[in-house]
Amino acid sequence: MNELNVFLFNTLLFSLFFNAGISLYGIFARPSLIKKIIALTIFSDTANVLAIVVGYRTWPSPEQSPIPPVITTTNPTTEDIARFASQAVDPLPQALVLTAIVIGLAVTLFLVFLTLQVYRLYGTTDVRRVAKLRG
């Protein structure tokens, strides 16, 4: 059963790495600027998920499943805190990713306006045709 768990978790990891590779291909090789923006968003999301995966705790024993990093009891005893420390996932990547999502939205909006301005000035969003234009 343990090998099956490892295989399934590795499937998730390989999917994420392939996602990063495909989106990098989209950023570098696809001609449309809008497609480049979409691929950049997928790439940043994949990086965020990888950060969360790093903070995920996979090593507890099979009868202990990991829990979110939130204490829900008002008066935690020492046993509660010890159990929390042995089961909760790492909250630091989650805090970083929370900031990264919002900043990524702002960056996307800036790129959208840049693309719109390129279209207004050159009449196309294809980088191959933009590169051939002069003046």
Binding site: F9, S15, L16, I22, G26, A39
Partner: peptide
Amino acid sequence: AVAGVVSLIATYLTI
């Protein structure tokens, strides 16, 4: 794992 594979397919179709 299923979510990862579905996201892989969706990313490929997107690009």
